[in-house]
Design a protein around this nucleic acid. Structure first.
Lengths: 224, 224
DNA sequence: TAATAAATTCAGAATCCCTTCAGTATTGGC
DNA sequence: GCCAATACTGAAGGGATTCTGAATTTATTA
């Protein structure tokens, strides 16, 4: 899952990035409004952390533009000032949440995962699909109420499939979320095949129906 | 565990802080309504000790705001006057408890730990998990009814794991709670590995099942 | 202040799993 | 049915992650 950090204080932005990378997010950093704008136009982010006061302008400006483009999904405003005005302005402009400096990184992380849950899973913390249960907070998977141990990549893969339930997703898209790389041309999808195989094996091995369908020449689909 | 003290009498607030720090709480002090408000918005506290009469306003005011934000968990009202009015007003506004000056610090401490228990462990003072018994009041651990001596950090670690039973928790999050206050990023988790190893060794050494699972690339889980 | 316990750091060892690879199977177009 | 392209499989190497015991620093107690 990709996060953009728009924050000019270098020390803060790097420690945010490091912390979030350890939580298995992929992070980009932009140090000003302009950089931020470019990155947002270029990539798709699951969440954007937006500082208000930036060297070349006001972060709220970006928010306004995003609103026009209707791309303002998953924005968390970060503000040094604990000003109620900023908070209200930000939320009015369509930000999803607000956190003021200084904050605990775990608090930030919790809010990010809440937002991503909201975007990808309508805010559900537990997904129940017949015999398959996925707990997004506990990071556990049950099949017929019995735990199935997945590795990190397998879990991420399953989540990506589930967030695109009944839709065909391309191998490129899957590979990107799995690898965490920004832009990467994959000469082959062997690593993806391997993870897919292992995930399917673990699920069906535990008695789960084979919901993950391979669509020849297209990609994969979690069909339920 | 973090506590905010909102109290303008400097002598009292520092002696409260000192006492509570000895009980291994991390304390912040705010000397007026405004400071208190800022700290509350910025940090997450397990408990807030709120004086009613403050130089720049009434503590109940903060309580009202907290109620709006639904963050009013774990508030203990402190008042000089033993006025029933204040007490009723405070509890009506959603405070969890009330203590009137002068009070014994041990009394305060007891109420704090009761509140934190209520918040984190649904009010239980003793957690029983098969052969493992954890007394939150006495701060003792029994395995097969025999005491196991844990250090502070080990006990805190165990508590954090227990309060997230059957959930995978990240090393980031564990490190933050263990270290207490600092917004500090760890270049490595060696100290965590050490505590985890020692805790596991003490528990299993006393005949406890190995409930603490390491989840590769994700964190740890107390699985029971 | 000395003595003791605890917390943290360190380096080497052990473990896990991600990726790659080579071979095999499946698919759709002809 | 044949062929090329695509997808799957099991196994293995290597790198990242975690564990461990001991050493060092820090905190606590007497």
């Amino acid at each position: 899952m990709k996060i953009l950090i728009v924050e000019d204080e270098k020390e803060l932005s790097t420690s945010m990035a490091t912390y979030l990378q350890r939580e298995n997010y992929t992070c980009d950093i932009a140090y000003n409004v302009n950089e931020g704008r470019i990155k947002m136009e270029t990539f798709d982010y699951d969440c954007i952390l937006l500082d208000i006061s930036l060297p070349d302008g006001n972060g709220l400006q970006i928010l306004k533009e995003l609103k026009v483009d209707k791309k303002l999904d998953g924005v968390i405003i970060i503000s040094a000032k604990n000003s109620l005005d900023d908070k209200i302005a930000g939320l009015n402009l369509g930000a999803d949440d607000y956190i003021s400096k200084p904050f605990h990184l775990s608090e930030l992380s919790a809010r990010i995962s809440a937002i991503i849950r909201r975007k990808r899973f309508q805010g559900n913390t537990v997904l129940v699909l017949n015999e398959l249960t996925v707990d997004l907070v506990a990071k556990t998977v049950l099949v017929h109420n019995k735990p199935v141990e997945l590795t990190r990549k397998e879990f991420d893969l399953l989540l990506y499939l589930l967030s695109n339930k009944n839709r065909v997703i391309s191998k490129n898209a899957i590979a990107e979320t799995l690898s965490g790389e920004d832009v990467h041309l994959y000469d082959n999808f062997d690593f993806l095949y391997a993870h897919m195989k292992n995930l399917k094996k673990k699920l069906t091995g535990a008695g789960c129906a084979d919901y993950i369908k391979s669509i020849y020449g297209m990609g994969y689909k979690f069909a339920i």
